[in-house]
Amino acid sequence: MTKLRLDGVVKRFGANTVCDGIDLEVEAGQMVCLIGASGAGKSTLLRCINLLEPIEEGAIWLDGEDISIPGLDPQPVRTRIGMVFQSFNLFPHMTAAENVMLAPRRVHGQSRDELMPKVEELFRRFGLGDRLHHYPDQLSGGQQQRVAIVRALAMRPEVMLFDEVTSALDPQLVGEVLDVLRVLKEEGMTMVLATHEMGFAREAADKVCFLKDGRIVEEGPPSQIFGAPEREETRAFLARTLK
């Protein structure tokens, strides 16, 4: 079943076309990895899917429903699509638990007491058991990013978008965040990742898309993209990054 579909999505910033006719299909439970040089348009594409940026042309479908109709209220859609950012973007004035509970309380009207057991359970599962009442600046980068993931998960989204979630981490902390992604995949979460972790993409992705200048130049299973890329640009990019 197709969970998410992009049809010829075009996004421009002024005269700069950042997404130039992107077609993409994501099946339910799939992990799709977007790779490509910095500036290729990966982040922008994710922001468009989450309706943080309006698109110029094309359409985005979630469960067969067009969510990119101009004028559509983006808020209900955003509750169904979670997003995690490269720079964590935790709210610095709230504890980890408060960060996680904010949206369920304000959007779903759930109470703190009702939420707390679930939050504790999520924290435990991702190795954050004793960090509930810490403020973001009292947490390591890896812990902050895991809290950010928990925060997005607390809204029970159907799709999760990850934008280079390990790029801001020290190398020894990258593993703990990638482990979380593996767990989510096992649980059947539909995910779209922009990533520079080629090893992880090769091992865990169901589909890899190589972006260049706002277009998907080549897509396929990781064995194809990393083992036998068809396009010259893909080969050149991989040669540069894997060196």
Binding site: L52, R78, R106, A152
Partner: peptide
């Protein structure tokens, strides 16, 4: 701006984004 984006991505309404995320900071 990333604080606003993070709050919006969680599905918070604009007034809640302002009230709970932007204004306190």
């Amino acid at each position: 701006a990333s604080q606003r984006a993070a709050a919006q991505s969680l599905g918070l309404r604009d007034k809640d984004v302002m009230r709970y995320v932007i204004l306190p900071q």
